[in-house]
Design a protein around this nucleic acid. Sequence first.
RNA 1: GGCGGCGUAGCCAAGUGGUAAGGCAGCGGUCUGCAAAACCGUCUACCCGAGUUCGAUUCUCGGCGCCGCCUCCA
Length: 492
Amino acid sequence: MASATPYFFNTLTRHKEPFEPLEPPCVRAYACGPTVYDHPHLGNFRYFIWVDVLHRYLRWRGYEVELVINLTDVDDKTIARAAAAGVDLPQFTERYARAFFDGLEALHTLPATHYPRATDHIQEMVELIERLLASGHAYRSDGSVFFRVASFPAYGRLARLDPEQMRSTERVEQDDFGKEDRRDFALWKKAKHGEPAWDAPFGRGRPGWHLECSAMSMKYLGTTFDLHLGGVDLVFPHHENEIAQSEAVTGEPFVRTWMHCSHLIVEGVKMSKSLGNFYTLAQLLERGHDPLAIRYLLASVHYRRQLNFTFEAVEQAASAITRLRQLVVRSEQEASRLPQSAPERTTQLDNALQLAREGFATALDDDLNTAGALGSLFTLVRETHAALDDGAADGVTLAAVLDWLREADKIWGLLPVDDPLLEFRIQHAGKEILARGPKVSAQIEALIRQRAMARAERDFGAADRLRKQLAELGIELDDTAQGVRWRRAGTI
RNA sequence: GGCGGCGUAGCCAAGUGGUAAGGCAGCGGUCUGCAAAACCGUCUACCCGAGUUCGAUUCUCGGCGCCGCCUCCA
């Protein structure tokens, strides 16, 4: 692929900036991961799909991406929920870590390089705290340790918050007791009875939430790295605090580009349990929604725009995927029998391909404009169908289209991969029929053969009965000019 | 109260200082034994008001509506 420069919107500067990794071709990225205290919901996956598309885009652009997604497995919520469930914390969090990974798999995300867990990095966090204490950026108070925000003048730069105003906030939290300044935040929380705790030189306790991300990101990616990703809600205080504690320790810039994904709303309103419109991925899959339709929908809206999730839109997404796959299926069927030289009139399809390539790349390079890229992609889909209908396509150009669609799909992850195909020819009643589809049982294969023969005899009554019989077995048939194609119901 | 985002056809959603991608749905055709897919045609959009401009959906201001952040929620 051409080596155009991506432009990303950097929350730090609030501008789109050319993205140049510190040490190309390597890109080091950290994405704030889930707190594993419940089944991940749609909003979580909107974010993780975005991370995945960004990951795939960077690889597609030729970068070697080191992606770290952490799991928060110790915090107020995990502790409280585990206690309520009467389960050990590790056992409890493992349950939801599993649910998280299951969801990622169902949605066809590429694996990250590391999935570190907070509880496996207590030592790294303790070391950071010791260094912060030694340099005066942190202080002990009643068994806990707090970060001294006043010692870090750049505080508030990411979130664009006025430090003076923050100081005068009325809100009082339980953990605020013992702070020098309202803005200070906990690095280490004093052990409470019955809660998980670790020994540390400054007292037994557990880490504050923000610290884990500093510890794990710097451990795996270095003290300065390229990209740090999160949901918009994390801009403040989480990321602001990460910057403060990390840069206070290292004296170096922590992250070069901060990117944040907007939230998802459902049917036009905020997703919340009290409104009854709160959905986990597992719930949607149980309802029979196609995970890839969900993937498509979540990926098709620009990440900085609030995404309005509707059930109608999921169905529409499923249709859109079908359209894309239909073209791939058709092209595969027709490519080999088309002339392998390019007659002049195919320049039309070739032009369409070039336009699609350019439009697609340009859109993605512009702050990962997925909707724009899909526009280019589907324009080519239409043009290719039209060229095939008009007999204006040659095998070489069509193969190039097919190659490009597969290349583009490295970002979307919607096309079936290495789906084993079964193919056979039936010669009957003076006709030869090609049949192809995914692997099926011998019984189903026999029915498909029978029906093909019935059709060759023009015994359509029998053919329709067999079609119906196969439908009951979950197999649908498409009769095309190139032969019969079967597929599992609901797939393409 | 402070800060920010959004408002494009029936639905989802790009984009642009010179009347606007794409997907889905609708309608009318073509093709098809049936079914599906596909193709062609078609319908329909830039929240309201003022301003800047030769010209604004695109810039500015105001209004309305929706959403979010302001210490642990992706």
